[in-house]
Design a protein around this nucleic acid. Structure first.
Lengths: 192, 192
DNA sequence: CTGATTTTTTGCTAAAGCGCAAACTTTTCC
DNA sequence: GGAAAAGTTTGCGCTTTAGCAAAAAATCAG
């Protein structure tokens, strides 16, 4: 059993227990993947048919506005899931690209297996529901902060909460996350 | 049985069925309230102990940033819930005010009764989980739009999706929602 | 109905940040 | 190790929008 799958199982069992039989099933129906830098994991325009638990590395999610400018609504770091949740759950066309920013290791589960787990793994639905609630609260907070905080404040909060992103991700990408030009971000960093 | 409670039950049963006995329990342990304009429903600094299904009217959620400026992360309209979800689920201090913008009718359920429903109403947890997932997807979309769309685009989307808000809410409030000054919003409206 | 209050509009000035260009630094890769 | 590519910094002019003030319009309340 891989160290990467262990991390995923640990995340699940930190919420509710899973039997060893169920763990074996999850192991059997998931695959550990290594991805190099700049690899596309999920594509704009496609229907998302897999979910990836990030064991190592950092991904970016990229969306393009009507004027053709790229933005990064969020980064996906270790211990989180690389997936377009809307496309995955509703099987609609994805409106975002998911791309690695560093070499990454992910535990990938196909949607058909994921759906199977909902039936075969006793606590799976509750675990997923718990994770979704956590995601909802975080998304809620980040949306509010997007409105009430200026770019400097949001940069400082990002630095406090996710130093790994500041260290490993280029300024260009962080600017795309903050919604400012890389020039402005360079000046913000110079004056703090 | 009030017409307002009917709306709430209808929302629930559109997701999964509820027995008439369970409906009676919900009826017994909830209260219909009328609120006049500018009434505070949930307060900054308190612990949220109730959730309100909005049957009529519009609420604003208000957050204040470090510089003391007020913003409106979202409006709550008919068919949605007036609640600080983070404070309600985690019983932490609320960081937002929830205030009526019009006369409102809400079906209020105390947290202790809400928690009781999770045990006593067979499908309640699944229904709430379904609603939270919907909320997550919407929050996700709105957060992305906050980043990728400029104020003009976000105003146009708000007008398309929620004409009732445009009609009934003052421009000042809409400006606080968009994150721009009321002067700029006035000029945006003039040129479209 | 009418005066008072609130909301919206508009002109003006100042500040913030964008976008371009060019220099400089760091990283990548053969 | 060194050339090429990628990323970062900085100056400068320009656009956008905030913020103030005051007028105009709409709404509210007795």
């Amino acid at each position: 059993m891989s160290h990467h799958l262990d991390k995923l199982i640990h995340l699940f069992t930190s919420i509710l227990p899973i039997s060893s039989k169920e763990v074996a099933l999850i192991h059997q129906l998931s695959q550990v993947q290594s991805l190099q830098k700049r690899a596309q994991y999920s594509a704009y325009g496609s229907i998302c048919k897999k979910i990836g638990f990030v064991s190592e590395g950092i991904f970016k999610v990229v969306r393009t506005n009507a004027q053709g400018q790229d933005f990064i609504p969020y980064f996906i770091t270790e211990g989180h899931f690389a997936v377009d949740l809307e496309s995955f759950t509703q099987q609609t066309f994805s409106e975002e690209n998911i791309v690695t920013l560093t070499p990454c290791t992910v535990v990938t589960i196909d949607k058909k297996h994921f759906d199977l787990f909902e039936n075969e793994v006793a606590n799976f639905s509750k675990i997923i529901s718990h994770l979704k609630e956590k995601a909802l609260l975080e998304k809620h907070r980040l949306k509010s902060e997007m409105l009430i905080d200026d770019a400097v404040t949001r940069y400082q909060k990002l630095r406090l909460r996710h130093p790994a992103i500041i260290q490993q991700v280029s300024q260009n990408h962080i600017a795309q996350y903050l919604g400012i030009s890389p020039y402005t971000l360079s000046r913000i960093r110079a004056h703090s």
